[in-house]
């Protein structure tokens, strides 16, 4: 009899406990998995796979470089010096510390001058920070390598934000008109912006002045401010 009560109690405890666990892990959400959730997971896995492939490529590159280094380290100092300086130039270009030149496009955006319709919001013919941001995103999408807005080189941490009548880029203020320069595949970038679905076309329909010129050769100035990082430090493997 006693054994039976004990057994009953045990079963109750187990069932109760598993119910609690169930409730905890579902986090109060409905246990409903939509098709979308599954595709989301699929894409996330795809992301990981692609990232892995890219890192494998990087490993191949790094191995090649290491071999070069080792060969050079055995030889004279001057060869290694040359190699390092080459490397330095490469990263200087990428980090925006050298002026860059090449083919690309110049985008000119200005507030519209057309008359407003009765009761129309003036904002429709004005250029906003989000317009500039979208243009830059579209340029990046179509393979821009180096970008600048009104001569201000865009860096990793460059934000474009509205501050009243002006736009703030890299902590400096700019007013209309805006000139965006991008070095890269000029035809592709131009097509992305002035195509039928392009953002440039959309802006023109609103009445904003939008002009795009393709240039065979142009220069983009370097970033001139000193770069100091207050918060981030290089992550090192713990030993």
């Amino acid at each position: 009899m006693k054994l039976r009560v004990l057994g009953f109690f045990l079963i109750c405890a187990i069932v109760g406990f598993s119910l609690i666990v169930q409730a905890r892990i579902t986090n109060g959400q409905q246990l409903y998995v939509s098709a979308k959730t599954i595709t989301d997971y699929k894409t996330s896995i795809q992301t990981e796979i692609e990232d892995k492939e890219r890192i494998e490529q990087l490993i191949v590159e790094a191995e090649k470089k290491l071999q070069e280094y080792e060969a050079l380290a055995g030889g004279g100092d001057s060869e290694l010096k040359g190699k390092l300086v080459e490397e330095l130039d490469h990263y200087k270009l990428i980090s925006g510390n050298t002026a860059a030149r090449g083919e690309g496009v110049v985008v000119f955006v200005d507030d519209g001058t057309r008359d407003l319709f009765e009761g129309e919001d003036p904002n429709t013919v004005l250029v906003h920070d989000i317009d500039i941001l979208t243009i830059i995103n579209d340029l990046n999408r179509s393979g821009a390598e180096v970008l600048s807005v009104n001569g201000q080189r865009l860096m990793n941490g460059s934000s474009i934000s509205c501050s009243g009548y002006t736009i703030r880029i890299n902590g400096q203020f700019f007013a209309r008109p805006f000139e965006i320069r991008a070095i890269g595949d000029s035809k592709r970038m131009a097509a992305a912006l002035i195509g039928p679905d392009g953002y440039g076309t959309l802006l023109q329909e609103y009445g904003v002045i939008f002009k795009l010129t393709i240039r065979d050769d142009m220069t983009i100035a370097r970033y001139t401010e000193p770069q100091n990082y207050k918060y981030m430090t290089k992550a090192k493997e713990e030993e």
């Binding site: 130039d89 270009l93 050298t98 860059a100 090449g102 180096v146 890269g184």
Partner: peptide
């Protein structure tokens, strides 16, 4: 990714 510029070159 691998950072390699095809169009831009340093001045």
């Amino acid at each position: 990714g691998i950072l390699k510029y095809r169009y831009a070159e340093p001045v």
